[in-house]
Design a protein around this nucleic acid. Structure first.
Lengths: 343, 343
DNA sequence: TTAAAATGGTAACGCGTGTTAGTGACTCGT
DNA sequence: ACGAGTCACTAACACGCGTTACCATTTTAA
């Protein structure tokens, strides 16, 4: 068993000075006068004892935890499938370290359950939270917001007025579909990434419609199917589309994972990609370029999302004035072969 | 601006009782006598004020943070590539929630740098840490261990005596290679997942050698190449192997990601998998069955790794006697088509 | 009737730190 | 020689909570 951690008191005793002086020296409080030699001795002893201030005590007196919460609102299987989580986390981590904060992660299956992530804020474990995958029926969230607790969304909740960082889903989807139109397709289907209750899903659908409209193409409900994050849903949806009397010649699938399911369905029918059906995905999952054919898809700035969200949150916490509280990051269309574009 | 959080004192004043009594009631301290009606009123007021105990204050007095640290020792690009992180985190999160703990994540680029993750323990931010991807040149770690600070490794450091949870790399690799041998291959190469400084890489190599030896096949250095996590390294290594006078008819690649690079190299030469070169990977990355051909690989119990590690750590923290401090989880060979096995 | 025990509660300390208001010694200018 | 000012430092409070020792009153037992 090791001796317990050294405190300011121990340093004070050893140096033969009051604890106050130790505190003043260690925090290098400006405008305070301590003789150079005393200061030196305090620093020396502190170093020798391997002193580090107690976080809890500091939090107690300062009222600041210097910790942010990162709340995952997705269900476990969605988190499993979330290839971007590591990258987002890195972004969050980097931003947070720059500001001397830490990250407490917490995943909740059911956000609507009372007390889901409330401990993080009610017990003052964090100074603010990033909410990944917010839901509109999350009333705790609105409550927190009303109390002025710092919150940043990864994703968005239109009309809530809560600061957020998100990708420009409408623009990204539009760009993807425009690319297919540019390749000559006129009968273009879509499979959403998720049920339309998710704003990201709805936004991507909106981008799809905008692209069609601006190209003078008609929109038909019959060409749209909804996925639910999982590959299986893509498989099913694509089979559905291929069963149509006039199946689409190209499909925009708003999730790479769902796209993989769709690809499998196409191949199982003996059809080829992109000749029979051209595909554009969404996410640019790391392995999108390993599938056959390599997937044309929309790259998300995962790291940037995390980084910007954490930056925004820490600014809100320390009370810095922030110009932009609603940040939309741009995406990039990565053209590979599944769309049929010449390389 | 909202009013600040309620304290026990406020409850005490409102009820007309001492703060001590409030504390006793709220903590339901056994063997203490409080009249039922007083107790009732305290609970009522506490609920009405939406009281939650202050975590910092509690930590200060109890000496327990009820938080564990999850330290990622990989470099950012490795973390990006770590498809298992979400799953591992879920495991950790679930175990931790069962025990009323929380998770503080921290990534460090250079573990050997002084003070890398020391704050987590020195400042008493956590009661213990899980170290993912430990390195043998991490002397802080040995120091912590010597002080009796609870540490659990995800991975292992042979000879250190530090509790760990890991996959049975030797056994898993052996099984993979035995499978290739069973299919009739005699000239079997290997590409490691990482430099041999990593114990996981060395263990998998050991498994490979054991399988060869037990089958009466000779081991040849020339058939082994080392990868470095990235696809590119697989591409390069495979090209190297194919340039041999007698190239292998099968290769065990100890990482799916590296395998994808290898597959690309094979295809670029116009060779086919598994006819010209059979492949078995390692990890069972989520998309392993979407590549062409679907990859035969070793599935890792990612969730279980996180769960067991967190469980073990919390037991060590609360001082429960633990029977097993060195846990090896079993893997599973997932047979698909890249190995050439009939389905 | 009186001592003992149970009942219902409180005062006070300590956890380790940040911060403010002071305090005694020493210097300086006139 | 004496008030004013600096210097170097300290006493004391606060943060919110857990816990122990104790106290006043009432009930029970002998």
């Amino acid at each position: 068993m090791s001796r317990s951690r050294p405190t300011q008191r121990q340093i004070a005793e050893e140096v033969g000075v009051s604890r106050t002086t130790v505190s003043l020296v260690l925090n290098d409080v400006p405008g305070v006068r301590v003789s150079p030699e005393t200061r030196q001795r305090i620093l020396e002893v502190a170093h020798r004892l391997n002193y580090h201030p107690d976080a809890a005590a500091r939090t107690l007196v300062s009222g600041r935890t210097c910790t942010i919460g990162f709340v995952l609102c997705q269900s476990p299987d969605r988190i499993f499938a979330d290839a971007f989580l590591p990258e987002v986390l890195c972004g969050v981590g980097d931003a947070v370290q720059e500001n001397g904060f830490r990250v407490l992660i917490h995943s909740v299956e059911d956000v609507t359950a009372s007390g889901a992530y409330i401990g993080l804020v009610r017990e003052k474990q964090t100074d603010g939270v990033i909410l990944s995958g917010p839901r509109s029926d999350d009333c705790q969230l609105l409550q927190l917001r009303a109390e002025g607790f710092p919150v940043v969304l990864l994703g968005q909740l239109p009309g809530s007025g809560i600061p957020f960082v998100d990708v420009d889903n409408v623009g990204a989807a539009k760009q993807a579909v425009e690319h297919l139109i540019g390749l000559g397709h006129r009968q273009i289907g879509m499979i959403t990434n998720a049920p339309l209750a998710y704003t990201a899903a709805r936004d991507r659908l909106t981008g799809y419609r905008q692209a069609l409209k601006e190209a003078g193409l008609g929109y038909a409900d019959g060409l749209v199917r909804t996925g639910d994050f999982r590959e299986e849903s893509g498989h099913e949806a694509m089979n559905d589309l291929l069963d149509l009397a006039q199946p689409p010649t190209a499909v925009f699938v708003a999730s790479d994972l769902v796209t993989f399911g769709a690809m499998m369905a196409i191949k199982q029918r003996g059809l080829t990609i992109p000749d029979d059906v051209a595909l554009v995905g969404f996410d640019d999952v790391r392995l999108a370029h390993y599938v056959n054919p390599p997937l044309t898809t929309v790259r998300l700035p995962a790291y940037g999302l995390g980084y910007r969200a954490a930056m925004l949150l820490t600014q809100l916490i320390v009370g810095e004035p922030v110009e932009e509280q609603e940040i939309l990051l741009q995406t990039e269309l990565v053209v590979r072969q599944s769309c049929g574009a010449a390389l």
